[in-house]
Design a protein around this nucleic acid. Structure first.
Lengths: 317, 317
DNA sequence: TAATTTTATGTAACCAGTTACATAAAATTC
DNA sequence: GAATTTTATGTAACTGGTTACATAAAATTA
């Protein structure tokens, strides 16, 4: 067993987590018997919630412990059979079932107390012995995975790998022409240039950089092959807009748009933004898919200064 | 969901591990589709083992990946249906089923390679971001739990708590009388003193301390209420012996024997011992149960210098 | 206020593992 | 070499969770 872990390394982290969790659940089972607590491991989360807070709804419990309401409903039934909890229909809402500990259940709270203490002590001792707190490592991972999912993180790495050789650099005036060309080329490929485009491209430095925004260029062997801008929004419910994305067709498939987007997202966070907005057109399927992968959520469409825009998205930073 | 963790703390570590593992398995599922690898997450451990080492037996695979042979047997069948593996009866042993990747399966090894790289990179990046390596924390815990099970550790804490007020101290000559009295009292309670007992008790300092062993005393409010010795063995397959355990009956039920044993075990480890041996009598049920809980394994009984001994046990340190 | 949508919970079926037992081949013992 | 024990694997049934669908009450909307 150890074999797989040592040979496969962190790739097998999922399996490893599950096996350790099973080991601990097994230990919990043994411990309940030694402490004379007549409870099954899977009852514990519900028992614990009820011990803190009498009369919980089934749905509330599910929410608190992170199980489906189905699992709670079934477990509550088992616990009721064992005489630990009782249920009643809510007086104010005919749909809800309320659950609470019985007297027998309440009594267990005191029986289980020393067990809690000993478990906590054993975990502290394990942390001290191993020199790493598994508990805080878990918390840190969960936190990080909440910000950006594991899938997303692996995808980011994939795009990073595929775009090896591409450098993302800050805009300087020497890229003025490249910035205009890349954008024009991009828009011309799918749509027609609008009045607003010309204004924005010519006045990019003042419109975007002059107002607290940012522009990135993607370079391949020193040559500008893509660009993207972060515009600070005013009189908008959102903080920043991802705009002026343009990548030259000859470097297609090297995830340059993805790299640029990652840079823009990071910059928006760095500048203290909480929301990043964008407009696009559903005709650009790969781009929309990319935005979704990056975590952008579709909004109900409202008006836009660009005629070609027919989809609006936003990302919580 | 987060609610339970924050409120219940490390007690809920089992649940938390399981939920993170499920999250990662879900991510694995998504990733296989984005990378175009036609494989189910649960197939992966078997696939990985076979990719390293063609033609494995069902039982070997189970051993390596830490699943039951039943799970392997069933999964192999599924994978065979998908054309990834094939099976054959072993030529030399009619019971065994050998499994290997098909050509289609072997081809997947190359398809999956970049995915491996990206996952590893994502995990490194997560470790860097969180500042804690979940992977090494897991390894450290597993290692520690292999040395002493979680159940055992919680039990240790329980005994520690129950024996609050008891101090375990090193033997000094001022305890000479107490050491003899405690041992005599203990033996007299259950058996008759043997010739060997008198010799050992009178000569304890030279027999035990003089030959690289150790003696602990348990004190309650300064009064010696228990003792236990660690004797270095010569001409024995084992390194040390736990012996001369004696606790006065008036402090029964305060886990003093347990505390003394823990001290002895720790000392034996400290002195570089690999095995700790003991002899006892099955009449002393609570003591035997305690030794078992401490991890001692029963041996086939061979002769002993004490007539009362009818059980021999050993602990791997 | 009638129709529709949403919400809380339950039922049924599934999933990925397990343990308990069955079977047949190999190894050991008398 | 016959009888017994051990080993490798398979089958059946269980476990602790899930998702998909059903139902009825409450909330919203036309």
């Amino acid at each position: 067993m150890t074999y797989l872990y040592t040979s496969a390394g962190p790739k097998s982290i999922g399996t490893r987590l599950r096996q350790l969790s099973e080991q601990l659940t097994g230990a919990a089972h043994d411990l309940y018997t030694t402490y004379g607590v007549n409870i099954e491991p899977k009852w514990w989360p519900i028992f614990y919630c009820l011990s803190e807070n009498n009369w919980n709804q089934v749905g509330e419990l599910a929410e608190k412990i992170g199980y489906s309401h189905v699992a709670v409903s079934r477990t509550v039934k088992e616990m009721a059979k064992a005489g630990l909890v009782r249920t009643r229909a809510s007086a104010s809402d005919g749909r809800v079932t309320e659950v609470s500990l019985t007297v027998k259940g309440r009594d267990l709270i005191h029986t289980i107390q020393p067990q809690y203490e000993d478990i906590s002590a054993a975990i502290s001792q394990l942390d001290a012995e191993t020199g790493t707190s598994l508990w805080s490592a878990l918390a840190a991972w969960e936190d990080a995975l909440h910000k950006r999912s594991f899938t997303g993180r692996v995808r980011d790495q994939r795009h990073l790998r595929r775009s090896a050789g591409i450098d993302i650099v800050d805009y300087t005036p020497k890229y003025r022409e490249a910035f205009k060309t890349l954008n024009t080329e991009w828009i011309d490929g799918f749509f027609v240039m609008e009045q607003h485009d010309y204004e924005m491209l010519d006045g990019a430095e003042s419109y975007i950089l002059g107002r607290g925004g940012h522009i990135f260029m993607a370079l391949l062997d020193g040559e500008a092959v893509g660009t993207c801008a972060l515009q600070k929004l005013h009189q908008s419910p959102y903080d920043f807009e991802l705009t002026k994305m343009g990548v030259t067709p000859k470097v297609q498939g090297r995830s340059i748009g993805y790299r640029l987007s990652l840079a823009i997202i990071e910059k928006a966070r760095e500048l203290g933004g909480k929301t990043l907005y964008l407009e696009s057109n559903t005709k650009l399927e790969p781009a929309i898919r990319m935005y979704r992968q990056l975590g952008f959520q579709e909004l109900d469409f409202t008006s836009s200064p660009y005629a070609r825009a027919n989809i609006q998205m936003v990302l919580e930073l």
